[in-house]
Amino acid sequence: METDYFVYAVTDRRFHPELNLIDAVEAALKGGATIVQLREKETSGKIFLEAAIGLKALTERYGVPLIINDRIDIAMLVGAGLHIGQEDIPLREARRLLPTAMIGVSVSTVEQALIAEREGANYLGVGSLFLTTTKRDATFMPKETLEAIRQAVQVPLVGIGGITQENIGELGSLVDGYAVISTLFAKKEIERATQEFREAAKQARQSISDRV
């Protein structure tokens, strides 16, 4: 079954301190999130593992893939997918340890994209496509670079970085999915925010189809 990267929800507890992680993610799933990434940069391994176990049970109930950011040990323990950056465990080694898992790789150049595709990445994360306050060390990706990566590889591209309902139309057909954090989880009504973002994404895609 082909993976749907359309609404790629990336967690960040900072945006919903009064709502626990499981409830926040379930609201996004009810709103139409198609894939979930657990991203925990500032928690202990124990808390990360507990969150991963809870989210794996939740996402299985909704029939949606769970991706673990960076931590291959936790991905292996809970049977989830993995997302890695250029400074994390090399993709070749990750694929050896997780031969059948979904693995995504963040890339910022055509060369990185080609290597990741060749070494078995299921999808590539590309960005930051717009200004973002979520990831302070994010590097802006010019549209020309995104276009070059799109032409160079066949694997799905997931855009990340400042994507909102207002600017999603600017991406055209350059990406296959939209990774969003604050656009969903910083909102008071996460389910409704997810529904609205999904609808905006569908309308953006439809406008592309209408022009073709």
Score class of each variant (00 low, 15 high):
residue 44 S to D: 03
residue 44 S to G: 13
residue 45 G to C: 00
residue 46 K to M: 08
residue 47 I to R: 14
residue 49 L to R: 07
residue 49 L to N: 00
residue 51 A to T: 01
residue 51 A to R: 00
residue 54 G to R: 01
residue 56 K to H: 06
residue 59 T to R: 02
residue 62 Y to L: 12
residue 62 Y to E: 02
residue 63 G to E: 09
residue 63 G to R: 02
residue 66 L to S: 15
residue 68 I to K: 04
residue 71 R to Q: 14
residue 72 I to N: 05
residue 73 D to L: 11
residue 73 D to T: 05
residue 76 M to G: 01
residue 77 L to I: 11
residue 78 V to N: 07
residue 78 V to H: 11
residue 80 A to L: 15
residue 82 L to H: 14
residue 82 L to N: 14
residue 84 I to R: 07
residue 85 G to L: 11
residue 87 E to D: 11
residue 89 I to K: 12
residue 89 I to E: 05
residue 91 L to N: 15
residue 94 A to I: 01
residue 95 R to P: 14
residue 97 L to R: 15
residue 101 A to Y: 00
residue 102 M to C: 15
residue 103 I to K: 15
residue 103 I to D: 13
residue 105 V to F: 07
residue 107 V to N: 12
residue 107 V to Y: 14
residue 112 Q to V: 04
residue 112 Q to E: 15
residue 115 I to A: 10
residue 115 I to C: 01
residue 116 A to S: 07
residue 116 A to M: 06
residue 117 E to Q: 08
residue 117 E to F: 01
residue 117 E to T: 06
residue 119 E to K: 07
residue 120 G to N: 10
residue 121 A to V: 02
residue 125 G to Y: 11
residue 127 G to M: 13
residue 131 L to I: 09
residue 131 L to N: 05
residue 131 L to F: 03
residue 134 T to S: 12
residue 136 R to Y: 11
residue 136 R to P: 00
residue 137 D to Q: 13
residue 140 F to V: 05
residue 140 F to T: 00
residue 141 M to H: 08
residue 143 K to R: 07
residue 143 K to F: 06
residue 144 E to P: 00
residue 149 I to P: 02
residue 151 Q to H: 01
residue 152 A to F: 02
